[in-house]
Amino acid sequence: MSEIDVINERLKRGDERFAEVTEALSRITTHLQSQDATMADLGTKIDKVVKGTEDVVSMWNGGVKAVQFFCRLAQAWTFLLKKVLVPVGTFVIAVLVLVAIISYREQGHFPAWLADAFKLVLAII
């Protein structure tokens, strides 16, 4: 073999290696492009998850506010019953009993309005 044949053989092997490297780089580029597309798709999915999570958190905060409102309403109702209606009701009942006793002793019967008030109290209870 002559020197030119040896050089041509080396050039041919170099071209083959260069083609292999070029093909490998092309496959790597294709793989990286598919990874980029997958990452972009994951980014949109993560954005959807973030939006959904924000919606759930805002709904939860609304629920917390509703619970706080109803707890305050229950506290107000309890206060109204214990501090207002029971003392005032007790006083009114005591006065009505006293009036009933006095009316019965003097007239021998209960007044009609007192009987109606008693029926109203029984209907409420």
Rank of each mutant, 00 (worst) to 15 (best):
T30R: 11
I125H: 09
G52W: 01
Q75G: 04
R13V: 10
D55Q: 07
P111H: 05
R17N: 13
V97I: 10
V56R: 09
I93T: 07
V99N: 02
A74P: 00
E20K: 12
L122Q: 15
L80S: 03
T30Y: 08
R27H: 15
A117L: 15
D116V: 13
V56H: 06
L42D: 06
V49E: 04
A100S: 12
S103P: 01
T90N: 05
I102W: 06
E20G: 09
L32I: 15
E23Q: 13
I7Q: 11
Q75E: 06
F79G: 02
H31E: 13
T90K: 02
G62V: 01
L25Q: 13
K45Q: 13
E23H: 08
L96E: 07
V97N: 04
V49Y: 06
E3H: 14
H109E: 09
I101V: 15
K83V: 06
V84Q: 02
L96D: 02
V49C: 03
T22F: 10
R17K: 15
A40D: 14
L25G: 11
I125R: 11
L11K: 12
I124F: 15
L80N: 02
A40E: 15
R10H: 15
L122W: 12
F118I: 14
Y104W: 08
W113I: 12
F91G: 02
Q107G: 02
I102Q: 07
E3K: 08
V97Q: 03
K119H: 09
V86Y: 03
S103L: 01
V84S: 01
D15E: 14
D15V: 11
K45P: 02
D116Q: 14
N61T: 01
G89K: 00
V121W: 04
E9W: 05
V121H: 10
I4G: 06
T29I: 09
D47R: 01
A76R: 04
L96N: 05
E9T: 10
F79S: 03
F91A: 09
P111R: 06
A123L: 14
Y104N: 07
F118G: 08
G43R: 10
E20Q: 15
L81P: 00
E23K: 14
E20A: 14
R105Q: 07
L98E: 00
V6P: 00
